[in-house]
């Protein structure tokens, strides 16, 4: 990935956004902030976002709803949720419904968080790279198949008993 990944931070508490912003900016990410779900969706619609970290309990709709909507609209954005009030049910719901990559508890550890983000982004990068490569492979196979039609046998190699490559000799064939 040549350009810096973009992280969108969604939380109604400014000090939390600020501290995360300082953390990720120092890790050379591009950081965007939103105070609520609507604002976050607006940003994601207009800007390229790679990863979103959303608070769970927010005025004007909870973070899970936001992430569920995000999954529909921008499925490639990696989703993380953050909360200070976690019971098992909340975690299960978040993972099943929001398909969140990671569930982060407040208070968080900066290093853990950075590691999670990096791994998540790497995984996302690998995924998209993988997708890209699979796509190219398919293209090339198409080309090869076309060639084999026009020149039968061109895509296969013959070997003799010693394993040496046998080249077709047009003269021999003619003789």
């Amino acid at each position: 990935m040549t350009e810096r990944p973009t992280i969108l931070i969604v939380d109604d508490e400014a000090p939390i956004r600020r501290s995360l912003q300082r953390l990720f900016a120092r890790e050379h990410y591009r950081v965007l902030e939103a105070a609520g779900g609507q604002e976050a969706l607006k940003i994601a619609d207009t800007d390229a976002v790679d990863l979103i970290i959303s608070d769970y309990v927010m005025p004007g709709g909870n973070g899970l709803d936001l992430l569920t909507t995000m999954k529909k609209r921008h499925p490639r954005v990696v989703r993380m949720i953050m909360t200070g009030k976690a019971d098992l049910q909340t975690v299960i719901t978040a993972i099943n419904e929001g398909h969140v990559y990671r569930f982060i508890l407040k208070p968080w550890d900066n290093d853990d968080l950075c590691l999670s983000v990096r791994l998540a982004l790497e995984q996302a990068t690998l995924l998209s790279e993988n997708r890209r490569l699979v796509g190219r492979l398919q293209e090339q196979e198409e080309v090869l198949r076309g060639l084999a039609k026009r020149y039968p046998g061109i895509t296969s190699v013959e070997r003799d008993a010693e394993g040496a490559i046998v080249l077709d000799d047009p003269d021999e064939a003619a003789a």
């Binding site: 508490e13 000090p15 939390i16 600020r18 501290s19 995360l20 300082r22 953390l23 200070g84 009030k85 508890l105 407040k106 208070p107 968080w108 550890d109 900066n110």
Partner: peptide
Amino acid sequence: NNPIGFVSSN
């Protein structure tokens, strides 16, 4: 947890 979160991060 909210304030503790950002204070510890800070």
